[in-house]
Structure formats: structure tokens, C-alpha cells
């Protein structure tokens, strides 16, 4: 994770509902308010669709 950014990932708050794989793997994903792309690239490691 520190590969992308060092802060605790606030999207971990979704984990009780959905895993990261359920959120991103093989999904067509839109990240709104992506900033410089650190978090978005982290999401991309879960294998979304191009």
C-alpha cells in the first residue's frame, strides 16, 4: 500500500459490506475526485476492466 500512499485507506470502511475484490475486480470503475491518482492506482491493482 505504501507503494501508492502512506495514509490509512479510508475506503477500508466499506470492507464490512464488500471486499476490495467485489468493489473493483473485473468492474468498470469510475473514481470521482481522484486527485493525483494515488488511490485510483491502488484500486487498479485489484484488476478492474480498462
Amino acid at each position: 500500500m505504501s507503494f501508492f500512499f502512506t495514509s490509512v485507506t479510508s475506503f477500508d470502511y466499506f470492507l464490512p459490506f464488500h471486499s476490495h475484490e467485489q468493489m473493483f475486480c473485473d468492474k468498470t470503475v469510475l473514481d470521482i475526485g481522484c486527485g493525483g491518482g494515488g488511490k485510483t492506482c491502488y484500486y487498479a491493482t485489484y484488476g478492474p476492466k480498462k
Binding site: F11, M23, K27, T28, D31, I32, G33, Y43, K49
Partner: peptide
């Protein structure tokens, strides 16, 4: 109807 997942993380 384009996206499967939309995320607004701290947005």
C-alpha cells in the same frame, strides 16, 4: 449505465 462501481472516497 456505463459503470459497475463508482467510488467517491473523501470526495
Amino acid at each position: 449505465n456505463t459503470f459497475d462501481t463508482i467510488i467517491m472516497n473523501d470526495a
